[in-house]
Design a protein around this nucleic acid. Structure first.
Lengths: 216, 216
DNA sequence: GAAAATATTGACCAATCGGTCCAATTAATA
DNA sequence: TATTAATTGGACCGATTGGTCAATATTTTC
């Protein structure tokens, strides 16, 4: 988070400057994602975001209709950021498919380490909090998982075609399994402030990939 | 939750009646566990518990020093309840070890279904929220996972001795893997309001157990 | 230059938060 | 019966919550 000066003038913004003053909105989203990946939704008030981003309350409610709308925007921004990250690793044609997955995991691991294992996954956090969240979040969160799983399944099918994993595997089910458990691993890594849970989980998952399955 | 009448008289309680008036405390713990397994810690205020349990605030602060102390009591109660549940299944000598684990999973699955997949795991919930929780919770939550994993590892070792799983497996690591991923599965089951994530995860885990491992 | 459009600002609001405090009530003790 | 211990009950407190709004500042359009 670059808490740069970003003077932010009042009054109607000049039309030329890129989008119609998306600076403030983008700053709020960046700050919000950073805070919510660490603390979740329920425990973070708007004022905390505002204080960190140095944005007054009026500006917030100019950019977002409500806290709930802000939450939706954060999920969307995070999902998009993460989908691009997944593609960067999982579509790298120069690398064997299974190795791509390993590299994504290593990248995610490094990301958590960089933040001292304080930040987890925004979607996982809100998923866990679903019982206390506005109902509108549920469909959005489910869709994000479905998207990530689809991208992962495609990579696993590539691995299958490359002969890296057995033809008997159900790649969609494997991708589902991966993301179900991976979110648990991120949870534990946060709790233990350690990469060990990520490593344990990754090792087990690749072990599972090695097993050749006949019966579904 | 049996919201029985339980009139709860004021004034000094009679000494004979079991423990020195543990009714109110136990009621608060029961209510708290029920609510927090669904909504987590951060989003649940004391007043909500009090309203549900029909207990006035003065009684709460007579039983617990603070909301934080209440949280610790809830974790302890839940961990104890769950450890007994684990033992009931995993130490059942009349059943093959792997079948014991399957039965525990089936029981947990049934438990979630019974509550319409609204309630998850208290320890998982608070673990996810750790970034927003008082620091004192961390060690307690870690210890609970360590305990559950130890009980599970013992069952896996029994399976190993019975020849149900390969001798090459590291049972402690497998148990760790199981609980890391299982919490993720519970999270997803809550999000999707469906048992499917539990089933997908369980199937993958038992598939992993079937694979014989040489290299650790 | 006047008017309209757009964005910023922070004081303000009702509701709720965790927590305090003490009167009221009842049982045990003397 | 008087005193003390234990527990209930709920009014109250300062702080914080999500959200509103009128005032202000700036640019565009006429």
């Amino acid at each position: 988070m670059s808490t740069m000066p970003a003077p932010r003038r009042r009054g109607r913004p000049p039309r030329n400057s890129a989008e119609p003053r998306q600076d403030t909105r983008a700053l709020l989203v960046r700050t919000g994602v950073a805070v919510l990946t660490e603390k979740g939704y329920s425990s973070v008030g708007i004022d905390e975001i505002l204080r960190l981003a140095q944005v007054p309350k009026g500006s917030f409610y100019h950019c977002f209709e409500s806290r709930e709308a802000f939450g939706h925007a954060l999920i969307a921004a995070y999902a998009d950021y993460f989908a691009r990250k997944l593609d960067r690793w999982l579509l790298d044609a120069a690398t064997p498919p299974l190795q791509r997955l390993r590299r994504f995991i290593a990248d995610a691991r490094q990301g958590m380490q960089r933040h001292g294992f304080a930040r987890g996954c925004l979607v996982g956090n809100l998923g866990q909090e679903m019982g206390a969240l506005p109902a509108s979040f549920r469909a959005q969160l489910e869709a994000v998982f479905a998207d990530w799983q689809a991208r992962t399944a495609a990579c696993l099918r590539a691995a299958q075609q490359a002969g890296e994993i057995g033809a008997g595997h159900d790649c969609a089910a494997l991708a589902q399994f991966f993301w179900i458990g991976w979110e648990g691993a991120v949870l534990r890594a946060k709790l233990q402030r350690s990469a060990a849970p990520l490593d344990v989980y990754a090792q087990g998952f690749f072990q599972l990939l090695k097993s050749s399955i006949i019966k579904q």
